[in-house]
Design a protein around this nucleic acid. Structure first.
Lengths: 341, 341
DNA sequence: CTGAAAGCGCTTACAG
DNA sequence: CTGAAAGCGCTTACAG
């Protein structure tokens, strides 16, 4: 139905191969012919059929993005969407397309990834999460499908491409920021301790406290995914009396936001009573009142670097297991103040 | 590199056409041959090359999902991700893939959509937003690319496929819910009045109040996208004295969540002082404390219906401009109580 | 019930 | 500098 290379060739009075070569701007075609062909292409509105091109080149110019199996990832929502957007942006620039692989169960996800990979619909994948014993990673690895991870791998760390922040140091910096402001009793609130990111940030938090000569109290560490009742009890324990923590490291801006509301239930205000610092420097950090001090992770570079590196890998220019660690920085806003008790 | 239909044919001692037909489970092939061929396929790990198939069938089995140009859509984040997940789920089921079209500018978005559409990489699109004078819609319409909208179209309403809630009635129901609880002074907080959804919900809110014989006070209507200072001033005006609204209709759960925090700044508590109802019945409604009463919009059906209908349209089984309006319902939680002043 | 052949829209050696 | 031909991995009339 649409106009093909043949139509262009006929109308321009050349062979299809000549048209193909001018599309690729091959130096073996004279400038004159190229111009003529280009004119015709414009005239009849030719657009190359990417499917046909893909078939002969054995390449699809598309990257698959793998979302974690959906469940309880509530607070991470915003992170994934910005990842998708960032990847999409970098891909637009490189003339790649992006496909989404997602599923309600691990089987569904794997199935979808398999048909994409083996059906030749993507050249490679970007995995947006990291967890232990992940059959998806196992599959990609076994089948030697090109892939990259945003985050820190549990396994194959030295054999795969990944882009990440140093979340241990980031966690440390968050805690240090509060320590430096004079806070002594600092809590850590995270979502789902099984996630690599959270574990690392928690580790950094722990180190910072230890380095400051403060004994780490397990009671100060809270997991949002705790059952309702248990969570409520712990909150009561922590903030229900006068000896409450004056500082909080929240593993995510949204968690910080929710936290501030919960605190108001105990009659505590941010930052007057409690200082809080989040991660991601997301839109929520800017939109919440007071504006949230947050650790910026350069998510833009996270996505663009991943895309560029993965493309190198896919076109075979590079086979090394490159790791890229991006810097982070504290963005100071209004949710933290000095505490000199 | 990978195993093709030819390999299967040779090993099974049949022609490639026979292999192709057994893949499609054609009735013209004997059960015996099919079984033999299937065995061989399994044995040597054959997976059809979707690109090749797409080339001959002139179909790609993929749906493009169009995200709005990114800017200030903060609170909607969660909505788009759940749409992507829902679409992906329905597509997995129907053996379709999903590609993402997104851009930082309208030009970038359009460009990306064009190469997808004209490059033959998608069979159709789902548009996840609705706005006035949208060049994207214009393009899709002119070029007769199959597409569907989730939401209510500004233009071509009678010529296109869309799936939506009745947001006017939903807005009305939200306001009525509060009215019925005895609230008289009810505020409406929304994000970006240019969006169709918000306009509709606001309209419903207005109607409900009028129907109840309450004059609608423009001061009670707040737009989150207002500049910082102006927003703060309006909040002060509304909640800075004793005559504050006792009920709030928030156009989104996240806005409601943020609102509750802001209110705590005025010493007001949910639901003791102010009752609040949100939209989307999102994870935030469940996770916030108190749990949020919210209007469920059946987002799952929103996505699945859209996918099914769009597929019908793409395969040409249907050319009508179907509209599907999904029901909604109030999910009662703990953020609203009676008010008998 | 099965196979040989043409074709989907491109690209790329190979000749000239 | 340009063209004729083969081929990427499939599907589908057309014959038999």
């Amino acid at each position: 139905m649409s106009v093909t290379i043949k139509d262009v060739a006929k109308k321009a009075g050349v062979a299809t191969s000549t048209v193909s070569r001018t599309i690729q701007d091959s130096p073996s075609i004279s400038e004159k012919t190229k111009q003529n062909v280009r004119r015709v292409m414009k005239e009849i509105g030719y657009r190359p059929n990417l499917t046909a091109r893909g078939l002969v080149n054995q390449t699809t110019q598309t990257i698959g993005v793998i979302l974690p199996v959906s469940q309880g990832q509530g607070f991470q929502n915003t992170f994934f969407l910005s990842m998708i957007r960032g990847i999409s942006k970098a891909c637009n620039e490189k003339k790649y397309m992006v496909s989404i692989a997602s599923g309600t169960t691990e089987e569904e996800l794997l199935e979808s990834i398999q048909t994409m990979a083996e059906g030749g619909r993507v050249d490679g994948f970007i995995v947006l999460y990291s967890k232990k014993d992940d059959p998806i990673i196992e599959y990609l690895h076994q089948e030697k499908v090109p892939y990259a991870m945003i985050g820190k791998p549990y396994k194959y760390e030295n054999e795969m491409l990944y882009v990440d922040n140093d979340n241990v140091i980031a966690g440390k910096d968050a805690a240090n920021y509060l320590l430096q402001l004079g806070h002594k009793k600092i809590a850590f609130i995270g979502e789902d301790a099984h996630q690599m990111v959270i574990r690392e940030r928690l580790k950094g938090y722990t180190q910072a406290l230890e380095d400051a000569g403060i004994k780490v109290d397990q009671e100060l560490i809270l997991d949002v995914t705790l059952p309702e009742a248990a969570y409520r009890r712990k909150m009561e324990q922590l903030f229900g009396n006068n000896d409450f923590p004056t500082g909080i490291v929240a593993s995510d801006d949204l968690i910080a936001l929710n936290m501030s509301y919960l605190l108001s239930g105990f009659g505590l205000k941010i930052p007057t009573d409690v200082s809080i610092i989040g991660f991601n420097n997301s839109i929520f950090a800017e939109k919440s009142r007071p504006e949230l001090t947050s650790i910026d992770l350069h998510t833009d570079s996270l996505t663009s670097q991943t895309v560029y590196q993965l493309i190198e890998l896919m076109v075979g220019k590079q086979t090394l297991a490159v790791k890229i660690i991006l810097p982070h920085q504290v963005i100071e806003r209004q949710s933290c103040i000095r505490n000199d008790n």
